[in-house]
Design a binder for these strands. Sequence first.
DNA 1: TGCGTTGTCTTGACAGTGTAAAACGAATGT
DNA 2: ACATTCGTTTTACACTGTCAAGACAACGCA
Lengths: 207, 207
Amino acid sequence: MATQHPHPRTGYHHGDLRTALLKAARLELADKGVEGFTLRGCARRAMVSHAAPAHHFRDADALLTALAAEGFRAFLAAMQAGRQAQAGARAELTGAGLGYVRFALAEPALFQLMFSSSRPDFDDPDLRQAASAAFEDLVANVGRIRGDNPRASTAGLTDVAAAWSIVHGLAALLLGQRMAFLNNLPPDERDDVLAAIIARTFPLREG
Amino acid sequence: MATQHPHPRTGYHHGDLRTALLKAARLELADKGVEGFTLRGCARRAMVSHAAPAHHFRDADALLTALAAEGFRAFLAAMQAGRQAQAGARAELTGAGLGYVRFALAEPALFQLMFSSSRPDFDDPDLRQAASAAFEDLVANVGRIRGDNPRASTAGLTDVAAAWSIVHGLAALLLGQRMAFLNNLPPDERDDVLAAIIARTFPLREG
DNA sequence: TGCGTTGTCTTGACAGTGTAAAACGAATGT
DNA sequence: ACATTCGTTTTACACTGTCAAGACAACGCA
């Protein structure tokens, strides 16, 4: 048999194959992309048989769902990091936006899984919660500029939609390499342009 | 060339299998989605053997590439239709933006193929040309507002990036059903909100 | 007309995939 | 010590994309 026996020593695999699979899946996703992602590939990376994952994840989509949930948590952290590097409501919003874009560029496949794949199951409570938490952060950032709860008014919701859209659009288009002049900018200069674009969402309505 | 009649009972199965396959592929894409798209499924829809497509498209990705190119042409038409329903540079831009979003909502799988799949080959001349044409239209719309060629300055390019980003972000997020309050609006009211958001890209700099 | 060539399609095969069922062995409880 | 349970492997099946051989229609040219 060509396939060498997975595991060196005694006992069950790691004791925790589930997290080992998640780790393997993150690698698989990062270098094969969403469309090249393979459950069997994950199993190989974790050095277990191709059917081993079944015990921990109902099917391939369930593994991707768990991965997407992890992704949203990292995504939220990236936005928070971007925000905390700034001071003042407006600067904080653009900081969070930069975090958003940086995350997308750093983990393109994960970002694609989270935002433009139909494979993750958004009815899954964990994923739903993780995605909502990220959204909450965005709403809170907008609320800090508006000085109210954006949910309370159509104008508030419109602000949220505008801010989210522009940042998401930037991220998606940068990922698709379809804005050459932006993709080719040196990172720091690029960030300046991005910040300028993001800032536009709130045309000097108030300080 | 001899068989131009639609249904030659005898002879080759189709007079023009290539276009029949493209048509089949459009259906396959629309109801299976990018991630469920299958070359064999297309062949079945066209009622030919599973290997027949190989003569007309190098592989599955080549078929998707041709489909994406068709998509970009329809996409451009949708933007132009949206623009021509309006008068004045600003209204035209938001009209085109509405066309952009409407296209995405009308053909979600195609839109996903065009903007967030790695399967189409953007080095293909036809696809490249079709995608560029759509981009040109956008630049022209922005140029009409600015009264210059946006390519000539960083400010112009930034305007283009901002306009494109916000509209693309809106489309992508609406597709992902992740802005419930927008998704649940009645279409006409939704369009008003979208127009308001799109209009923000150009904060009252000039009429 | 006949014949060779080309182009179109079918058949069959292969490796790879996801997933279900069954077999097997380690870990655990009593 | 034994039975049970749980984690994993093995086996199997239907499906995919693609390749290699054919069968056969259409065309060019005698």
